[in-house]
Design a protein around this nucleic acid. Structure first.
Length: 500
RNA sequence: GUUAGUGUACCCAAGAGGUUUAAGGGAUCUCUCUGCAAAAGAGAUAUUCAUCGGUUCGAAUCCGAUCACUGACUCCA
């Protein structure tokens, strides 16, 4: 029996707002699409949380035995400065500002994005398509929508006719927006006169003379609208109806609503069975935003290089910190919370190192102990299958850590469990930590030279202790502590150290 | 204004009607181990879940109202 049959996944579907049992279109296979970054600037922590969320989703599904095709795009064109479909393309603007070719900007920030993903141990998707690589498809679907009467051309630009679509479908099915309210409340810009209705959105925009990124189309030299790329790339690689579509909460409207309208308009069916949205980040209770000056970049967080940060925090600490909350809740960043996470993560990380070194010594099951251990293993899976509840899974791992330390110290004896139980317990801990949650030891500044020097001092301290020269042994320990090196004396006389 | 969501201990946070006499992490305190530390283990710290009503045999969990906060879309500047 595959793991996914033993632990069927339940997930909260934004489309309908209910928690449902997950059933893939094709048994054993999963198609998942996630809106990737617009590569005109550095990724910020909000982006990281979204990609982390779906990293967990794909890791867990794979761990359960599903074959996952995970598509996450790179938006390298078409994301307009504002959703009035006016203004300059973000990438083109940046290119002019920095006197670079647009594709130079794209490459620079794409590589930066990949580096950040690597630091957070977020695995790459199966396919990472770019919008500019799919212009032909975007033009084709635009033609299709015009043919169906759901889009119209004005002055070389093409717009999606929302009211027309709404006569036979439901615009607002995902976001809960009421179309009448949208029409009433909007403001009218002069330049929006091209549209039949202000809520219409662009499928193709004619390029103004200053626009650097431009391609030929049946309607004009121009560039595609923002929403169409995701529809095209998800359909191309995952089919007209696929399993999961993810993204940040802020994309729910209008972006994902528009995607649904385009796909339903073009193909006549709902494109996605399960919509998943990850929630936003706040800082000290306030939303994280550039204008408030409280947003920070990953590298600022690592270095502690920001007015709101007392010190730096490693990427694994941050990853752990984010996993301690549910992806659908807002999460608050603060020094206090980060400090707590750092200590908590160190505890798990230490237990991971310990459990790897544990070896079964031969014995048979004590029923009570066995049930206790296996119950925790089961909890990990049940919790993960319950809408990817990483917080509860971590709680289970902390309890397992206590047992692991008991085995190490001798409070519990490995002779009281069978080899089978031991391996089930040990493997679950390691796999849930490393494969599913993607947590690994923080990349310490572990230079061989430094370790060697510390070990020399440790040897001296050992000798001092044997000689009961505690004044000297304490001096070695205290002086090292001053420098950020913590020595830990084991019962057996062995000494370990950690660098802070 | 429209719409979606949130409000749980000193801090972060889980919780989707009875298995919770409210997980887990941090903090604080006590004890065990230890030459002393550190680490680790054991225990303690919310009669209570923003407020007020209601439904129910039973609610943090459902409904209504109020207050506060957040996102999106607007509005104003």
């Amino acid at each position: 029996m595959a793991l996914y049959e033993k632990y069927p996944v339940h997930l909260s579907n934004s489309l309908g707002g209910k928690k449902e049992v997950f059933k893939p279109v094709n048994p054993g296979h999963i198609g998942m699409y996630v809106c990737g970054p617009t590569v005109y600037n550095d990724v910020h922590l909000g982006n990281v949380r979204t990609f982390l969320t779906f990293d967990i989703v794909s890791r867990y599904f794979r761990h359960l035995g599903y074959k996952v095709r995970y598509v996450r795009n790179i938006t390298d064109v078409g994301h307009l400065e504002n959703d009035a479909d006016e203004g300059e393309d973000k990438i083109a603007k940046k290119a002019r500002v920095e006197q670079l070719e647009p594709m130079e900007v794209v490459k620079h920030y794409t590589e930066g994005f990949h580096e950040v993903m690597r630091q957070f141990n977020i695995l790459p998707p199966s396919i990472e398509p770019s919008a500019t690589g799919h212009l032909v498809e975007q033009i084709e679907i635009t033609k299709n929508l015009i043919d169906k009467g759901l889009a119209y051309e004005v002055n070389g630009s093409v717009y999606f006719d929302v009211m027309k679509y709404h006569t036979s479908h439901n615009y607002g099915i995902l976001s809960g927006r009421v179309i009448e309210d949208l029409i009433e409340s909007g403001r009218k810009l002069d330049s929006q006169d091209e549209k039949r209705n202000k809520i219409d959105f662009a499928l193709w925009k004619k390029a103004s003379p200053y626009h650097i990124m431009r391609w030929p189309s049946p309607w004009s030299i121009g560039f595609p609208g923002w929403h169409i790329e995701c529809t095209v790339m998800s359909t191309k690689y995952l089919g007209e109806t696929f399993d999961i579509h993810g993204g940040g909460m802020d994309l729910k409207f209008p972006h994902h609503e528009c995607e649904i309208a385009q796909a339903v308009g073009a193909n006549g069916k709902q494109p996605v069975n399960y919509w998943l949205h990850s929630n936003m980040l706040t800082v000290n209770g306030q939303k994280m935003s550039k204008s408030l000056g409280n947003s920070f970049l990953p590298r600022q967080l690592f270095a502690g290089d920001h007015a709101l940060l007392e010190k730096g925090f490693g990427p694994m600490t941050v990853r752990f910190f984010m996993l301690q909350s549910h992806y659908s809740s807002t999460l608050d960043f603060s020094n206090e919370a980060l400090n707590a996470a750092e200590k908590g993560f160190r505890k798990l990380s230490n237990a991971l190192g310990t459990v790897k070194k544990l070896e079964h010594t031969g014995g048979s099951d004590n029923a009570e102990l066995r049930d206790d251990l296996l119950k925790m293993v089961d909890a990990c899976y049940s919790n993960m299958s319950d809408d990817f509840n990483t917080a509860k899974t971590l709680a289970a791992l902390f309890e397992m850590s206590a047992r692991i330390n008991d085995f190490k110290s001798g409070n519990l004896s490995l002779k009281n469990i069978s080899e089978e139980t031991f391996h089930a317990f040990r493997n679950a801990y390691i796999q849930i930590m490393e494969d599913v949650l993607g947590l690994r030891e923080e990349e310490e500044h572990n230079h061989e030279l430094l370790s060697g020097v510390i070990n020399v001092l440790i040897d001296l301290r050992k000798k001092a202790r044997v000689d009961k020269n505690y004044a000297l042994s304490d001096k070695i320990r205290d002086d090292l502590k001053q420098l950020g090196v913590q020595l830990k004396d084991g019962k057996d006389g062995e000494i370990n150290f950690t660098i802070e």
